[in-house]
Simulated assay, not measured.
Amino acid sequence: MCDACEQSLASNTKRSSAQYATLATGLFPMQQNLRNRKPQVDMTQDLHRVPGSRPPLEIARVMDAEQQFSGRRPLGDRMRSALRTLSDEVNWLWCDPPTQAYAVAAPRRGGIDLELVADPTNLSAGIELLDLVCDRMPTGRLWTHGDKSSGRTAAEANGLEKERELWLMSRDLTDPITVPQPPAGFRFRLFRPGIDDISWLELNRKAFESLPDQGSWTAADLQTRLTADWYDPNGFFVADYDGQLAGFHWTKMETSGSTTTPATGEVFLIATAEEYRGSGISEPLLLAGLEYLQRQGAHQAHLFVDSSNSRAASFYAKSGFEHRDSDRCFGWKR
């Protein structure tokens, strides 16, 4: 271990050296001053390996416990995918004993993106783990999922500043949905992979210019979603105006895995090009996707919208969506 890390370990008396050794072992190869060391916790072949470490099997129990408590899945799509793939972009972190709290980190320019899950009966474990991560990485941001998430509890306990809030809004899909005809000159069609990619990426960039996580998508990012196991080519609608891409509505079905719990649908991405806003295309484009989700068996649909985007939130509210919960992004710089 580097001299700086040794000094940090020696100066902090709140936690054992074994806890820090495990954290440093699970910590990022992106932090070049930490040597690769064998993790001092039991490994499992049941979860795929990611560089630096792989999470103990116990993480499945902790994730399930938090989901039962909060009503939300504790990790986002990107991090959950890392549990199923050999992705080399994330690393898992935990403290001894490896039964209470876990974090997953991905590098980004100038810091890390972090998500956290903790046993709801021992939220202090998540608070302490986040404290350790912030101590090791001077700059980063933590995404949390839900008002009752362990990540939010840990962020607020550590005094992190909230940078963004995404509202989770949902509406019922049990009543019949009538899709209005698009305004004159517009037509709806399906996205054409390999043909619409460039124009879609450009529209996505402009539409989400203020949200760099979404607006910075590359062709590779798009391809990753187009090849995901959830992708449905019949649920990706675009609005065409005289051969130009005027808008899109990308839907997503989420199955519960239960025969008794109805499936839900998601407005995964939706946008209208600036020059066509006010044309009347947004409502039929939204309803076209919702009607498709309904035909696929969804009884409810949800979406995420930035809390600061009052125009979009108002539009969704008028379309029957209600604010149910929130995801938050907390940042630190020390």
Results as ranks from 00 to 15, higher is better:
D3H: 02
A4C: 12
E6V: 00
L9C: 12
A10R: 01
S11C: 01
T13A: 08
A18S: 10
A21I: 02
G26N: 09
F28N: 14
F28D: 09
F28V: 14
F28E: 11
N36L: 15
R37H: 02
Q40M: 05
V41M: 01
H48Q: 12
R49W: 11
S53Q: 03
S53V: 05
R54H: 12
E58T: 15
I59S: 04
A60G: 11
A60C: 07
D64Y: 02
D64R: 14
A65Y: 13
A65E: 02
E66L: 05
F69E: 04
S70T: 08
S70F: 06
G71E: 02
D77M: 04
R78V: 10
A82N: 03
L83W: 06
R84F: 08
T85E: 06
E89Y: 11
E89W: 13
V90L: 06
N91P: 08
C95G: 07
C95M: 15
C95Q: 15
A101G: 06
Y102L: 05
P107I: 09
R108T: 10
R108L: 03
R109P: 05
G111L: 01
E115M: 05
L116M: 12
L116C: 01
A118V: 05
A125L: 10
A125C: 09
L132R: 03
C134Y: 05
D135V: 04
R136S: 00
G140V: 10
L142V: 03
T144G: 08
H145Q: 07
H145G: 10
S149Q: 08
G151V: 06
E156P: 10
K162L: 14
R164D: 12
R171I: 00
D172I: 11
Q181W: 04
Q181V: 10
G185Y: 03
F186E: 11
I195G: 12
W200L: 15
E202W: 08
N204E: 08
K206P: 09
F208D: 09
E209M: 09
G215L: 01
S216A: 06
W217S: 12
T224V: 07
A228V: 04
W230Q: 00
P233M: 01
G235S: 11
G235F: 00
F237P: 12
V238G: 09
V238H: 01
A239E: 00
D242T: 03
H249A: 07
W250S: 08
T251I: 02
T251R: 07
K252L: 04
M253Q: 04
T255K: 13
T255N: 13
S256E: 00
T260D: 02
P262C: 08
P262W: 11
E266S: 07
F268M: 11
L269Q: 02
I270N: 00
T272R: 09
A273P: 02
G280P: 06
G280L: 10
L290A: 13
L293C: 14
L293F: 14
R295W: 12
Q296C: 12
G297E: 07
H299K: 14
H299P: 11
V305K: 09
S307I: 07
S310E: 09
R311F: 07
A313T: 04
S314C: 07
A317R: 12
K318A: 06
R324P: 10
D325R: 09
C329M: 10
W332L: 03
W332V: 01
R334H: 14
